[in-house]
Design a protein around this nucleic acid. Structure first.
Length: 291
DNA sequence: AGTGTATCCTGCAGGC
DNA sequence: TGCCTGCAGGATACAC
């Protein structure tokens, strides 16, 4: 479900309600989202205070007061749902009726303000881990750079992605090369950069990477501004759907007209995922581009 | 090294 | 209504 803009939106929404809260306990409903098991997890988080709410790539990161973190990869359908202490308190905050009710709770964190935080995940592809500071540093080191960091330039992008013979769409999804990009924004960026998703990454020159680098940052920034993309069930921390769905140019638009040239958007499948493209705007052979 | 396939799991839409 | 197939914002493991 979530890519970088959705994770960023969730982190921003949860931050004011979670920072400073102490986790009284974690009740494990579905152990399969805890790769290290329920017992160890509960022992590590019980009694810890949340000092920060952030994001690394697509992962949510709850920083704890002993420098450890709770690392949450939401998979396809994971949600972090804040539940207020009571309905009356929700009224006071003006949040009545807007909170999302958990349908498939996997973990319930009981908080010291009487509220709770529920990790809810229909398909349970998501993973929740408690990592000591050193383990987290190690893990983070294995992830690629943050595409929105100021220092992340097109040269670095070409160095990290440009040596692969794999289709550029697949390479963009590789979290070890670049953190945070998923199928929606990979497809949107490639359309905006007029690059066919199946082009081997190594066939792209510096000019193409400069273009791709620029539009990827634009797309991610605009999607954050719109609070993410809702295709089916993504909701932000306040229960609202993302508005970027309305700005999608190709993703999930098979058979519809390209908003740039009017050609029909195609869906192709490779690497076990759908790719969406405009065959006129994104020719496989750029020399034959008609625009 | 790259690619296709299968797997984890549930729900939903569409065809018949 | 039911049954079937295919599909889904992710990640990984495997055989070729």
């Amino acid at each position: 479900m979530p890519e970088l803009p959705e994770a960023e939106t969730i982190a921003r929404g949860l931050r004011p309600m979670l920072e400073g809260r102490t986790i009284l306990d974690a009740r494990v409903v579905h152990e399969d989202v805890l790769p290290r098991g329920a017992g160890a997890f509960r022992a590590k988080v019980r009694g810890r205070t949340i000092t920060g709410v952030g994001r690394r790539g697509k992962n949510l990161v709850l920083s704890l007061d002993d420098a450890s973190v709770i690392l949450i990869n939401l998979g396809m359908t994971g949600k972090l749902l804040p539940l207020p202490a009571s309905a009356s308190e929700a009224d006071e905050r003006g949040a009545a009726g807007r909170e999302v009710i958990p349908t498939h709770p996997a973990i319930r964190f009981r908080l010291d303000d009487g509220g709770s935080l529920v990790y809810d995940d229909v398909r349970r592809f998501g993973r929740v881990e408690a990592l000591a500071a050193e383990k987290w540093r190690e893990r983070s080191r294995r992830l690629g750079p943050e595409p929105l960091e100021e220092e992340f330039g097109s040269r670095e992008m070409m160095q990290r992605l440009g040596a692969s013979r794999s289709p550029i769409r697949n390479v963009l999804l590789d979290q070890q090369r670049l953190a945070g990009v998923g199928n929606i924004y990979a497809n949107e960026a490639l359309h905006r950069a007029k690059i066919h998703p199946r082009r081997p990454a190594e066939s792209l020159d510096q000019e193409a990477f400069a273009r791709l680098h620029g539009v990827l940052r634009e797309v991610l920034t605009e999607a954050i501004r719109a609070e993410g993309t809702t295709i089916r069930d993504y909701r932000n921390a306040s229960g609202r759907p993302g508005r970027y769905s309305r700005q999608l140019q190709v993703y999930d638009r098979e058979g519809q007209a390209c908003l740039r040239c009017g050609e029909t958007i195609e869906r192709i499948v490779f690497g076990n995922r759908s790719a969406f493209l405009c065959p006129r705007c994104q020719p496989m052979d750029p020399d034959r581009a008609s625009n």
